[in-house]
Every structure is written in structure tokens, then in C-alpha cells.
Design a protein around this nucleic acid. Structure first.
Lengths: 123, 123
DNA sequence: ACCTATTTGTCCGTATGTATG
DNA sequence: CCATACATACGGACAAATAGG
């Protein structure tokens, strides 16, 4: 998995790394279930700080592309979650984000969603 | 603007700060256009590291609640941009729609949303 | 049940860069 | 040009989850 970064570039290293990994995902160089190098290993090979790689991993995790777990490392999410559930996943993430934005508690959000489900609301 | 954190708590400091600020927003203690203390000042008064506050600010910025700008500081977004209910309701309607599309039952959807809500407190 | 190694998560401190005023 | 204030990156330390012996 080659991945090159440019320390003299204007855009941040963590962003270059995140984009590089995303590119590897779209080109198929990285596929579902593939294990990524540990953050420390990738940091060493790229000659950047550990935190910089962790931040890049966190970005892709937040986008639903990676599963990052303590003690286990980082793997590309299963194909089922990437494709079939992509829209649902985004919708869930979005509604959680909106709920947080207006300061809703978990049970309040669940109540809203439950109501919405029964009312057969449309977009 | 009082804001208390618990260093011995299990959940992260940056998250406690972010939630505390969000609470101040929903209770009206902080309103549109209000200026927040500089990250360094808040960090000093809370006796935490500068980065911890910056991370909290970044979370709220990503959720559209704050405008964080270099050299200028941090302010609560204008009321016009907060149009909360419309966006939240669209998000709820959307997630219900997506759930139906993939044939989810109500309890399955609620489980997903609940998981999503608890999952992402870190960035 | 215990211990150890691995790996990410958080927090701190410091330095430097960049946009704003 | 200079002060302010956030942005990025580095390094170090410890905590917490995981896996395996």
C-alpha cells in the first residue's frame, strides 16, 4: 500500500493521509476487511507523528469507512456496511448530529424517531 | 458563563466541555453572536490544556454551532444559521425513510440510532 | 484468574505556522 | 509591523480495550 505525502504542501498532513487512504479504497488497493498498518507503523514509515496518523484514521472512521479499535487495530469496514447501508448509515449519523446540535438527549431523539416511524412521514 | 468539568470522570474532558457549552447554548446562557473566551483563557480557567478546549470548540464548529476563526476568536453562529427544528425534522424524516427502504423494523432503527448516539462522543 | 504485549484514546507541553485586526 | 488567536505537528506519558499465553 503505497502512500506518499508532501510535508511542504499547504494542506495538512493528516488530511493528505486521509485522502490517500480514501483513494486506496476507491481504487481497490484497499478492500473490505483489509487490515491497515498500526498507526505507529504507518507514522514511522511516513516519518510523521503517531497523532497525525491517528487523526487521519479517525476522520475515515467518522465517515464510516474504517473500524478503529483499541488493542485490535484498524480494518476497512465490511462491504455490506459500505454499500448497502451507506445511505442509512449517513442518515443515522446525520440525525444524531442534528440532535446533538440542538442539545437533545438520547431518549428525546429516540422518541422523535419512534414517532416519525409510526407516522409514516415522508421527506 | 460557568462551566464545570470533572477530571476524574470517565468521559473525556473535551467532551465534557463541548457538552457544557452546548448546554449553555440551549438554555440561553449563550446566545447567537456571543463571543466565547479565547481557547487559552478558557483552558486556564478550567485548568486544562489549550488543545483540550480547542478540540471542544472544533466539535461545536463541525456541528455548525460556533464560528471559530484564527486571529479573531470564537462566536456563537447567527440565529439564522441555527434554524434547528427544520433541519432536525428533515433528518428524522430522512432516517425513517432510509430505514423503510432497507426494510428495518422500528426497534432495529431505534437500536441503530441509539448506538449512533452513544458511539460518537470523540472526534 | 492473571499477566503481558499490543494498539488506540486522551491529555499535556512545546514549537511553529497562518489568518485577522 | 505587531499583537492576537486558532491550526497543525511533534514528543511524551499514561489510560483503557483487546488478544493471547
Amino acid at each position: 500500500m503505497k502512500l506518499s505525502i508532501d510535508p511542504s504542501s499547504a494542506d495538512p498532513l493528516f488530511d493528505q493521509i486521509a485522502r490517500g487512504l480514501k483513494r486506496a479504497l476507491t481504487t481497490g488497493a484497499l478492500g473490505p476487511g483489509d487490515r491497515l498498518p498500526t498507526a505507529r507503523d504507518l507514522a514511522d514509515s511516513l516519518q510523521v507523528n503517531l497523532h497525525t496518523v491517528l487523526r487521519a484514521y479517525a476522520i475515515l472512521r467518522d465517515e464510516g469507512l474504517l473500524e478503529v479499535r483499541r488493542g485490535r487495530g484498524t480494518v476497512v469496514v465490511a462491504r455490506a456496511k459500505m454499500l448497502g447501508d451507506a445511505r442509512l448509515h449517513r442518515a443515522v449519523a446525520n440525525v444524531v448530529s442534528e440532535a446533538r446540535r440542538v442539545g437533545l438527549e438520547e431518549n428525546e431523539l429516540l422518541r422523535l424517531v419512534s414517532d416519525g416511524f409510526r407516522e409514516r412521514t415522508e421527506i
